[in-house]
C-alpha cells in the first residue's frame, strides 16, 4: 500500500506571548491508502487540532505535511480549498447540513465548487446517497430527517466527490446508540470497499470499529497500535 498522508513533527501553537497555547506539541504519523484510523484522547489532547491540520482546515506552526506525495505546506488558501474539494470528505459531529434544502442538493454541495460538469452531479449524488441507503429520501428536506439519517446525508456529501480520505470528527457524538451503531457499520463498509477513513472519537466502542488506533495525550502521540480482529 502507498502512503497517503505523511506528517512529520507537527506542532500547533495558538496565540503568542503570554496567551500562547500549545495544542499539538510534536506529532508524526503516516497513513496509507485504505486504512481505517481512529484518533483518541481526552479533551485538550490535541486530537481535533490534528484532524483539522490533516483535513487542511488549519495549518501547523511547525513540521511538514505531505499529502499523496505532495508537500502542501506552501499551498495558498485557494489551492487548499481546491484540494479539499477534490480529495477530502468531512463528517462533523453536528451534521452541518443546509437547512430547508433537499437531501439531493445537500449532497451535491461539494460538486458546485468543483470542475465536475453539472450534467453529472445528479448521478454522482444519487450514487453517494445509495451508498448510505437513503435513496428513498432524495427529495426530502433535511429538517424532515432523523439524526441518524442526517448524519448519513453528511456521509453521502463527504463521499460524493470520491475523495481519497474521509475525516470524521465525533460523527456519532449527537446520535443515540442504535443510530451510532448503524452509522459505524456504514463507515466500516466504506472502508471495506477501499476508502481511507480517519475518525476522531473519545469513545472506546467507536474506536473499536477501526483497525488502527492512535492515542493522543497533551499534544503528543501516546500510543499507535493496530487493532487485531
Amino acid at each position: 500500500m502507498s502512503k497517503l498522508i505523511k506528517a512529520t513533527n507537527l506542532k500547533r501553537v495558538y496565540g503568542s506571548g503570554e496567551v500562547e497555547t500549545v495544542a499539538l506539541k510534536d506529532a508524526s504519523l503516516e497513513i496509507e491508502k485504505g486504512e481505517f484510523v481512529s484518533i483518541m484522547g481526552p479533551s485538550g489532547s490535541g486530537k481535533s487540532t490534528l484532524l483539522h491540520i490533516l483535513g487542511m482546515l488549519d495549518r501547523q506552526t511547525e513540521g511538514t505535511y505531505e499529502f499523496d506525495g505532495k508537500t502542501i505546506d506552501e499551498y495558498d488558501e485557494t489551492q487548499l480549498a481546491n484540494l479539499r474539494n477534490e480529495s477530502l470528505g468531512f463528517v462533523f459531529q453536528t451534521f452541518n447540513l443546509l437547512p430547508r434544502t433537499t437531501v439531493l442538493e445537500n449532497v451535491q454541495l461539494p460538486l458546485i465548487y468543483s470542475d465536475v460538469k453539472e450534467s453529472e452531479w445528479s448521478d454522482m449524488a444519487v450514487k453517494a446517497i445509495k451508498a448510505v441507503n437513503l435513496e428513498h429520501r432524495l427529495e426530502h428536506e433535511t429538517g424532515q430527517l432523523s439524526g441518524g439519517e442526517r448524519q448519513r446525508v453528511a456521509i453521502a456529501r463527504a463521499l460524493v466527490n470520491d475523495p481519497d480520505v474521509i475525516f470524521a470528527d465525533e460523527p456519532t457524538g449527537n446520535l443515540d446508540t442504535k443510530a451510532g451503531i448503524d452509522l459505524m457499520s456504514i463507515i466500516t463498509d466504506l472502508n471495506k470497499e477501499g476508502k481511507t477513513i480517519v475518525i476522531v472519537t473519545h469513545e472506546e466502542e467507536i474506536a473499536a470499529y477501526s483497525r488502527r488506533m492512535i492515542k493522543l495525550r497533551d499534544g503528543l502521540i501516546e500510543e499507535d497500535k493496530k487493532i487485531s480482529k
Binding site: G55, L57, E77, T78, A81, N82, R84, N85, E86, F90, F92, T94, N96, L98, L109, P110, Y113, S114, R157, N161
Partner: peptide
C-alpha cells in the same frame, strides 16, 4: 457562520 464554514470545508474558496 456555520454554513460558511461548511462551504469552505467542502471546497469553497474565498472568492466563491
Amino acid at each position: 457562520t456555520r454554513e460558511i464554514g461548511l462551504r469552505k470545508a467542502v471546497g469553497a474558496t474565498k472568492k466563491n
